[in-house]
Design a protein around this nucleic acid. Structure first.
Lengths: 236, 236
DNA sequence: AGCAAGATTAATGTATCCATTGACGGATAC
DNA sequence: GTATCCGTCAATGGATACATTAATCTTGCT
């Protein structure tokens, strides 16, 4: 019964355009609302209210909520509705631990296998952009380039499962990172670390890539946690 | 609006017993069927058929399927039903890459923070059990102890997100591991590696714990992949 | 015979309906 | 005044009904 042709389909392609089901649009919409802070943590919201707000019945709402819950963005509580989960300081610590381990591992893998020139170029470009942005104090641009760097690095492993996991973790951290962007010290050392990682990858230096990236993530994680503790920011 | 009391609830406790919703039971049931091979990869199964088989309407089926899909166990294809995803060789490679990176990182974290004596005892006990099982060629018992070792190690980090991610990855690998258990060479070196990891943790030797565990996972991954390639096993 | 366009059908996605159940408030007993 | 019990009610979980739509089959044409 197992068709040999099935093998290539192991990661089903989700049609990103064209006719999308209502559930998917609701999911995207809600996720956007959560990430961008239109829907804040704390209060419970009823399914019906969400339905009214988005203009759809409870069914697609429920299905979208199930997905969001399994991704750790919301909590569904039987007779209270759903609420956006706050990300506590300890939650952020968890997130950074995973981030550190997985990204450093990704750097090692990429260094081991060697990266395409196109990938290296993308990484270089991201670092250059970070420098540029930092020079003119454009934090938003810096953050964008930083994201791109990390995303490119992870994508370069070609490991879809790894990519998916990282993406979910990123989403969980998104709000906090956005909030703290303006408050954190200027990320000067960050750029140097990124550059060094690219170099290690280029040199096929597995251990170096791993060590440098791990160190970098660990430090920026520590910085962020310290910042959060100082600010007593608990939710974003 | 953000209640300070919310912080502790960040990881909502799922009531594991008591009144459970039908959706949850369907989810458990389906997951069990998939993991234990009662529902094989390859063929598409319609929602209605599942409903009939389990004795429930399509609604809870759909909701359970959404969860299973987001966990990477099945694929839902609009007019064909759902099918259990086969785990290809390359899929297994992905899984082991993640496993390797995360577990080694977990070992490092535990070594860094130091483990409770209870945890160390559990790990010791698991290793002892593995030895015992190996001596009498009881592969099932060995596998069970091996699982327990890895689960305990990851749990010892106390990082719920890490634990959840690992659990999902484990589930994905479950069928293949079960299939190959009888076919793989006797895991003699495995036990030694496990023992060494526990020692490193006991000595608070971060780097050692990381290096040994990474090496171990990497090797057993390679062995498994080679085995799969030889057998041309593509789905479980 | 082979192929294309249209009709048919079956499975889904969504809406709606209904029964269940847990939260809340008020009344009562202490 | 306080705590407890019970009744009410609202929100949910689940079943059902319905519209949509893509896959398949038919049929006619070349």
């Amino acid at each position: 019964m197992t068709d040999i042709a099935d093998l290539d389909m192991e990661t089903p392609a989700r049609p990103s355009s064209g006719k999308r089901a209502q559930t998917d649009r609701v999911y995207d919409r809600l996720k956007h609302m959560i990430l961008e802070g239109e829907l804040l943590p704390g209060g419970f919201v009823l399914q019906e209210e969400l339905g009214d707000r988005i203009g759809v019945s409870r069914t697609p709402i429920r299905e979208a909520l199930i997905r969001l819950q399994s991704e750790g963005l919301i909590e569904i509580r039987p007779r209270h509705g759903m609420r956006v989960l706050p990300v506590s300081v300890s939650g952020m610590r968890e997130i950074y631990e995973v981030l550190t381990g997985l990204e450093a591992h990704a750097a090692k893998i990429v260094a081991e296998r060697g990266a395409e020139t196109a990938t290296l170029a993308k990484l270089d470009e991201a670092v250059a952009e970070m420098d540029r942005a930092l020079a003119i104090d454009d934090l938003a641009a810096w953050a964008e380039a930083d994201d791109r760097f990390h995303t490119t690095l992870v994508a370069a492993t070609g490991n879809q499962r790894l990519i998916d996991i990282m993406s979910k973790i990123f989403d969980q951290a998104y709000r906090v990172r956005k909030l703290t962007l303006k408050l954190r010290p200027k990320p000067v050392r960050s750029n140097a670390a990124h550059r060094a990682v690219v170099e290690a990858i280029r040199d096929r230096d597995q251990q170096g890539a791993y060590r440098i990236h791990e160190q970098h993530r660990r430090e920026s994680g520590k910085m962020l946690i310290a910042l959060l503790e100082k600010l007593e920011i608990t939710a974003a």
